[in-house]
Design a protein around this nucleic acid. Structure first.
Lengths: 211, 211
DNA sequence: CGGCGTTTTGAGAGAGCTCAACATCGGTGG
DNA sequence: CCACCGATGTTGAGCTCTCTCAAAACGCCG
């Protein structure tokens, strides 16, 4: 997840850089955990393979994101990490981090907060997967990932990747986006989507009180 | 999530018990966070309401589970907590916990580990939601929730609740279970499901290496 | 210029959702 | 003790939506 601040300088310097070619594997589900990684450049995806051999995307990590944090406390990784594009990561050994946490409460709290944020993010993803129609799923994604202007969203590099994140086939996504364009609900330009007037996003976490 | 050990005695005693009637709300999405809760008896469900007004279950918490941990670091709760049955919970004020974490590294590490486990759990749920057919979803649930004997699974109190956890309509679940019984894949007896021979569960996290 | 992967569009089929009716169970009150 | 009532459990039929398989532009890179 995107969080720059939690790594104290002492640990940051212990990081070991590594670069990966597109398609290269960083770690596999089941292999022993050695530490966590921070994405410097490029994109990695965290995936699992279901029983029908289909690859499902658990998370798509970009620069600044940290991956495999949860594995700090597990013996083995619980998903695959594969480079989607050429990428470079920084590796932080498990022992160094745990030692640092023992010493530095600040770092600990920041790390905990990051884990907490990640949990919320995952809950949001889970919510997303419960939406049945492709159109509403796209809408939900847009609502959650709106830029500061409240009108545009930057899409993942390829639509195929986007489809994977949404849990749709790419065909279904193409069709849905095309339909939404025809209906003047969105506008697509160079990897960005713009919501058009009359189609305000519903805020997934409204400041709603009251029973 | 189920974890008994992370609460140090000093904080445990700061807990305030509270009981809820079936259907009563513990907290609502959007309201200010005051702390986290541990379920003592009964069941609570964490839900969100999607735009179509449908309630979706993010998590179903039973005795021993802790809920709203992530909210420790957030200003507002990000989902609803509603008692499914008559229930009692123990409330731990945010400030007390944070203070304890500053003092007690052991507690901190245990809490972090719990967050990490929860992340893994959520990833598993996410994986589950990617399964399209009801039958495979049930199979996946069974595989992940098998008791020690490797053959039986205790279901949630009602099938409706179970359907919610699986992200299916209750009708679809009824039909699927009935079919699986007809096919002699499972056996249902008093709230439990038993896998029958010839239908070994696939282990979702196999000790698989290779590649 | 020739692959190779992404982007599109087409047609068909399967699976769950929706709406609807009915059975069953447990608790409540007459 | 029994009738009533609400919620859960169960089954039926039709519909809609995505998935799947297929094929064809399009873009990029060697």
């Amino acid at each position: 997840m995107s969080e720059e601040a939690w790594l104290p300088a002492t640990v940051r310097t212990a990081g070991i850089e590594r670069s990966l070619k597109a398609g290269e594997t960083l770690f596999r589900q089941g292999s022993r955990t050695v530490g966590l990684y921070k994405v410097l450049t490029g994109k990695l995806r965290l995936t699992r393979v279901d029983r029908s051999g289909r690859e499902i995307v658990l998370y798509s990590a970009g620069p600044g994101d940290t991956i495999a944090e949860a594995s700090l406390f597990a013996a083995t990784y619980h998903c695959d990490a594969i480079a989607t594009t050429k990428a470079s990561v920084c590796f932080y050994p498990k022992a160094a981090l745990l030692a640092e946490f023992k010493r530095n409460p600040k770092a600990t709290e920041a790390f905990m907060a990051m884990l907490a944020r990640q949990i919320m993010q995952l809950r949001t993803n889970l919510e997303q997967r419960n939406i049945r129609t492709a159109r509403d799923r796209v809408r939900h994604y847009l609502a959650v990932n709106l830029a500061a202007d409240g009108r545009t969203v930057t899409l993942p590099a390829t639509l195929k990747e986007f489809a994977g994140i949404l849990g749709l086939t790419h065909e279904a996504l193409y069709r849905t986006l095309a339909k939404m364009q025809r209906d003047a609900e969105i506008e697509r330009r160079q990897g960005k989507i713009r919501l058009l007037a009359g189609h305000d996003p519903d805020h997934t976490q409204p400041p709603a009180f009251g029973v």
